[in-house]
Design a protein around this nucleic acid. Sequence first.
RNA 1: GGGAGCGUUCCCGAGUGGCCAAAGGGGGCAGACUGUAAAUCUGUUGUCGACGACUUCGGUGGUUCGAAUCCACCCGCUCCCA
Length: 377
Amino acid sequence: MFKVIKREGRARRGQFSCAHGGVVETPVFMNVGTQGAIKGAVSAHDLKDLKCQIELSNTYHLHLRPGDSVVKALGGLHRMMDWDGPILTDSGGFQVFSLSGLRKITEEGVTFASHIDGRRIFMGPEESMQIQSNLGSDIAMAFDECVENPAPYGYVKQSCERTVRWLQRCKEEHDRLNALPDCLNPGQMLFGINQGGTYEDLRVWSMQESAKIDCDGYGIGGLAVGEETEVMYRILDVTLPYAPEDKPRYLMGVGTPSNIIESVWRGVDFFDCVMPARNARHGKLFTWQGSLNIKNEKYKLDGRPIDEGCGCPTCRSFSRAYLRHLFKAEEMLAMRLAVMHNLWFYNTLMERIRAALDEGVYEDFRNAYSRKLEEKI
RNA sequence: GGGAGCGUUCCCGAGUGGCCAAAGGGGGCAGACUGUAAAUCUGUUGUCGACGACUUCGGUGGUUCGAAUCCACCCGCUCCCA
């Protein structure tokens, strides 16, 4: 269930709910735990302390390890991770892009050579739906092909047409599985995915066709995969007007704080990105003055918290100098503390975006922070 | 006392006459990272007035057109036998 409660231009302030957790306030950033854990030794319990509203995991990775049947036997992903909030599972469509050297695509689906041991894994729309059903997530993503940018028009056209055909198959299989008596999460929703690369006509076509298939929300995929940022914004500008007004729009895999601010402005409701966690593991931390690299020598004797005024578990107790030391000494606590800070930052960013929308001052917020958060301090 | 080695740029360590400012690793410094094959990857790491010049391979002095590489002595260290 989703409803828009306030608007400012194309930006939307909304509320969403699904089978787990209470009301999700949107715009929302989903915290990525690909294999059922947030990389950097952060658990689902920690997510509660980091103001996370939705957790995201991955179909391909959990199918390989520990196996979706194992997850189902353990009571589902929620039970396994001990996370009682909403979970969105990505379909494996991104792996068609990220593991492009290890797969072959046909109309039926995609055959992967497992990145772990090379064995053949076939995944098509039906398989992806079955796996996500076994995982028991609250939102299943349609199985799509995420195409790199730039790509030839002809290829993108046939690919996004196939992705729409796959969406139809996903929808049918999803409805069938949800109706089965032993279904782990009969309330599981399905989001379709818009593709079309950097081609406006394909994007619009893909959106229109996907909208004809009744989904609970729509992902915008295939962005931030090689194209210029301005191209991504242009695609959002031309595509989102064709997305159903009463359904959430999810910009998949995006992005930087600035990307998020700009995309909310253009009408996006859901986001997810590995950036806060990955960058944290590599020492790049976000602050309201811009980002910093905690490993830099200048923080050697810096007794201040990462971000003055930040209320995250890390900043409440530890100094930049200590964190720098932990990174230099390769203590795993470094990653944990850094990841917690960055996830808190992203979740707080969304909180402030929502507050600005509530107060009708989002344009001011955008002007104040969109550029600033891209700076390095 | 006798014998055998070793000393290289921040560290370890290759290099035994020119292609050597000197491999490789570590450490240092910096950068990248966007639905996670990422605790990963990349650049850089003698000095300078820098498409060139200068100083450097324990020290000093030689041999040579040319030396980290060969010779002599000195200093320091290691191992073996007594």
